[in-house]
Every structure is written in structure tokens, then in C-alpha cells.
Nucleic acid binder design. Structure first.
Length: 404
RNA sequence: GCGCCGAUCGGAUAGUGGCUAUUCCAGGAGACUGUAAAUCUCCCGCCCUCGGGCAUCGUUGGUUCGAGUCCAACUCGGCGCA
């Protein structure tokens, strides 16, 4: 049922165009996966998501386990039925919350860091201190979570995560991993990566056991490569995770902003060509060209939708903030020339008014535009890889987008 | 006309003798990468070489080492009585 077919490759040997087949339809790759953490892409109906160009949605194990609960999702007929989204769905394992509710919690640490910031060796004592007042604590067996909703205690292991994901009913699920902080030093990265490898095996074994007891086809499972900013660890992780019989791969963890390209390259040269690769949590326009060129087939990111809800709008001439004063009397669409629903029908002036008056429609219209913008870039990449014009398109787009 | 009450930054507020005048909204800008996110941060009297400097609680005077805070008069507003 799950299948990946490559149609054409970039001359550099890494980038490619393909089709992933899932029980809920085909995914033409490369493609951008829109994020719907709690079983909804915030402010959008499934029809709007589809019309904006998204082929597939990513939901989250941790959030849906807490509310409404995976059993409840199952009772509602699974994610697809619950959300009324008939296309493919993938679920993240909760591995990102290991980081966002762990060391990152309260410090607003993102998965990117400037290359100039040196890694901090995690001395046991320092690390223990960093773990205080956190909502996620990592142990060998799994992760102790304190609910972000009501403070209740929960334990997520690789097995538990996979079971929850089977209950949720996505087409593609992820192995449970630890997303490491960009501040982590070699020693911690190594320990964490090795544990993530053990978790990958446990996730896969659990997944296989569940599949054996099922009559019908189950979801595909992707293993996640970690290793952080370290070349040797990234390569080691790519080799190990490739050695397991996953259906595809995720590339996770944190990166040096300036050098993400290198890290993705190290990994994708090792991952088996014939299986799909998902770059987790990446989605700014420049990142997308890099990811596709370096051989990623899928990538998800909260950026287009979160930024949209805060007034950030992608345009061919770079990102603007539509709530800025200068747009109050601007009668142009968000991005002149854009073919999305929002740009076909509304002005910057109206949308800045919607934001200023905190009208819900502001979030919807902005999200529609940003998703359209991103999915459109990626489908153009697909077209230009097929026609042999990828390099030209990349130069043209990035030249204009980052002109200022 | 008499009496009572009130006047604090664009709006609303806190502040009854002490050092830097509070908070919310509005306004200006920034951040956001597997969603703790319709969130968060900064600025919001004037000047600045970004260290700071100078103002300021209706007005004027007074008491006091020290006043947004106490006193008096005045101005404006609200309420009541004529």
C-alpha cells in the first residue's frame, strides 16, 4: 500500500521528484506538509487547506493524546474522519515535545542556532539544573511529561507513542525520538542519539507487532535521524537508522542556521535513495530550496501558519508584516500577482484592518495565503526539476525574495 | 450663588508625605522553523554622543529636609440645593 516512486533526479544526484502512495491517496513530492498539531490547521477548514495547495497534514501525538485522547480520536473514526480530511495524514511521535517542553521550555530556545555559538557540554550537574521546572524529562525508558493543559503526569515511551499513533490512524507515523537542543555538546548528543536509536528499534518492533495483529494495511513508519550539529554523529545516525526496516526517514534535531545544508547533505548521501525523506520542522523559503536540492521529499513547518497569524506575510519580494502602518491605505493584494483566494479577493488595507480589530478572518486569510505561497514554491520546484530548470528558478526566486 | 465631589501620559486606571509615578487599552516596531503561540519581546513626555540629561500628576502659591499625596486660592467638570 505504502510506496515511493522516483520520477526524475537533479543532476547533483540528491534532489528528486517522486510520488508517495498512501491509503488516502498519492503525494506528489517534493511537497510541503502543513502542520495541524491538534487535528486542525489553525483557523482553516479542510476545504481551505486543500484549496491552499496542501496535499498532506501533520498532527501531533502528544497534543492529541492529552486532548481529546487517542481513544476518543479512534472512537470518532480516526483522524481522517474526525478532521474530515480525506487526504494523507502523518503524525509526529511527540519527540519534538521532548525538546520544546524539555530544555527549551521557558527559555524559548529554537532548533536553530548561529554557528558562532559554541555547544555547551552538558555536565551532569548543569544538565540537572536545566531540567528543573520543565514539562518533559527524558529517561532511558521514555519521557515523563507534565501536561501543559492541567499539570497531570504522563509517560510516553516509544511503545506508547506508536500505540497512540496507531489509534490516531495516520497514514505515516514517526518513531519516538529525542529532539536535542542546539546548545547540547558532543557527550550529551552522543548519549541522546544512542538512546534515540534504541527507541527507534523499540518503535519499529512495536509497530511490527501491531501490524501483525491487524487484518488490514496499517500505517507506514519513518525512523528519525538525530546527531545534532555534529558531523560524525549525524552520519552514524543516518547509517544506523537506515539499517532498520523503516518505510522512510525523518531528519530531526537542531542545526546551525548557516550550515543546515551541510548536515542535510551528510545524512541524505547515506539514507537509501529509494525511500522518502522528511526534513522535520523546516519551512522558510530559502530552507525549502536547500532541502529539495539536498534530497528531501517532505518537510513540515509551523512557520507559514504561525507567522501568518501574527501578521507575517510571504511575498515574492520577501516577508512583510501586514500590520505595519504603511499598509493601512494599501489597496493591493498581500502579494500582487498571487493566485490564492486571499489575494484574488482582498486588499492589504482590509487585512490590516482585520488584524487591528482582532477579527478571526485575519488569521484565516493570512494562513491561506502563506500556505499557498509555500506549497506553490515547492510545486514549482517539482515542475522545474522535471523540466530541467530548477537552478534557474532557484536563482530567480531567491534573488528576488532576499533582494533587500 | 451655596455645598459636596473630582482633575495623574492619546483613553482608562494605581498611587494619602520618601528614592525610578503603576497597570490595562490604543499607538509604533521586532521576533517566531516536527505549535505551551490569534503568542512573546521592545518602544510609547522632550533631548541624547545611548552612558545619560531635562521635564511632568489642572493652575498659582504655601507647609515640609522632602509634595501627585497636606493647606489655600483660582480654573474646569460632575452632582445636589436655591
Amino acid at each position: 500500500m505504502f510506496n515511493f516512486k522516483i520520477h526524475k533526479e537533479l543532476p547533483n544526484g540528491l534532489g528528486r521528484v517522486g510520488t508517495i502512495s498512501t491509503p488516502h491517496g498519492d503525494i506528489e513530492t517534493p511537497t510541503f506538509v502543513v502542520v495541524g498539531t491538534k487535528g486542525t490547521v489553525k483557523s482553516l477548514t479542510p476545504e481551505q487547506i486543500k484549496e491552499a495547495g496542501a496535499q498532506i497534514v501533520l498532527a501531533n501525538t502528544y497534543h492529541l493524546y492529552l486532548e481529546p485522547g487517542d481513544e476518543m480520536v479512534k472512537k470518532m473514526g480516526g483522524l481522517h474522519k474526525m478532521m474530515n480530511w480525506n487526504g494523507p495524514i502523518m503524525t509526529d511521535s511527540g519527540g519534538f515535545q521532548t525538546f520544546s517542553l524539555g530544555v527549551a521550555y521557558k527559555y524559548g530556545i529554537s532548533k536553530f542556532i548561529a554557528a558562532s555559538v559554541p555547544p555547551i557540554e552538558m555536565v551532569e550537574e548543569a544538565y540537572d539544573k536545566l531540567r528543573q521546572n520543565k514539562k518533559a524529562k527524558v529517561t532511558e525508558d521514555g519521557v515523563e511529561f507534565q501536561s501543559i493543559i492541567d499539570g497531570s503526569k504522563h509517560f510516553l515511551s516509544p511503545e506508547k507513542s506508536v500505540e497512540i499513533q496507531h489509534n490516531l490512524g495516520a497514514d505515516i507515523i514517526f518513531a519516538f525520538d529525542e529532539c536535542t537542543s542546539p546548545h547540547a555538546g558532543y557527550e550529551y548528543l552522543k548519549q541522546s542519539m544512542e538512546r534515540t536509536h534504541r527507541w527507534a528499534k523499540r518503535s519499529l518492533d512495536c509497530h511490527s507487532r501491531i501490524l501483525e495483529n491487524m487484518r488490514m494495511a496499517g500505517p507506514a513508519i519513518f525512523g528519525i535521524v538525530q546527531g545534532g550539529r555534529d558531523e560524525s554523529l549525524r552520519k552514524e545516525s543516518a547509517r544506523y537508522i537506515s539499517s532498520l526496516s523503516f518505510d522512510g526517514f525523518g531528519i530531526g534535531g537542531s542545526f546551525e542556521k548557516e550550515d543546515m545544508e551541510k548536515a542535510v547533505g551528510w545524512v541524505n548521501k547515506i539514507l537509501p535513495k529509494e525511500k522518502p525523506r522528511h526534513l522535520l520542522g523546516i519551512g522558510e523559503p530559502s530552507d525549502l530550496f536547500m532541502a529539495v536540492e539536498k534530497g528531501c521529499d517532505l518537510f513540515d513547518c509551523v512557520s507559514p501558519t504561525r507567522i501568518a497569524r501574527n501578521g507575517g506575510i510571504y511575498t515574492k519580494d520577501g516577508q512583510i508584516n501586514v500590520t505595519n502602518k504603511k499598509y493601512r491605505e494599501d489597496l493591493q493584494p498581500l502579494d500582487p500577482g498571487c493566485k490564492c483566494y486571499t489575494c484574488q479577493n482582498f486588499s492589504r488595507s482590509y487585512i490590516t484592518h482585520l488584524f487591528r480589530t482582532k477579527e478571526i478572518l485575519a488569521y484565516t486569510l493570512s494562513s491561506i495565503h502563506n500556505i499557498y505561497f509555500i506549497t506553490n514554491i515547492v510545486s514549482r520546484m517539482r515542475e522545474t526539476i522535471l523540466s530541467g530548470n530548477f537552478e534557474n528558478y532557484k536563482k530567480e526566486f531567491l534573488g528576488r525574495y532576499y533582494k533587500n
